[in-house]
Amino acid sequence: MSTITRTWKVNGKPIKVRAPAGRRLLDYLRDDLGLIGAKEGCGEGECGACTVLIDNEPMVSCIVPVGQLADGTEILTIEGVEKKRAGRLLQQAYLECGAVQCGFCIPGMIISSYALLPKNPKPPTQAIRPPLSGNLCRCTG
């Protein structure tokens, strides 16, 4: 498999990437960068526990090969969310509203919620449902 050499920004920090083109972004983030916040729940893009932002779009990192991401790609993971004010407010809202139970889906949930806000800063409940429907939660539903 060919090896790629790229420069991305991960959580605002420039990162020199050298990895096999077919390596899953999820494995690269967790194993090479130690960003364990994104979780593997199904490995086939169904559960959303591995969701990260790629150039501001929520994507399931278990089915993204690193070779697909060009130089200059910006990636935001749960570890980077709290560096943003909106991210901290979201985390606080999750705490206060009792949205967290086992917690395994929560990093992906928060990433999907964070992605929604710039498009719709004050979403009514019905507008929150579709963008979160790709994140399975078995505790709270």
Partner: peptide, 15 residues
């Protein structure tokens, strides 16, 4: 508020 929630919303909890 849950005592374990902070680590969970920050992605720090190690499963």
């Amino acid at each position: 508020v849950r005592v374990d929630a902070d680590g969970k919303v920050r992605g720090l909890t190690r499963y």
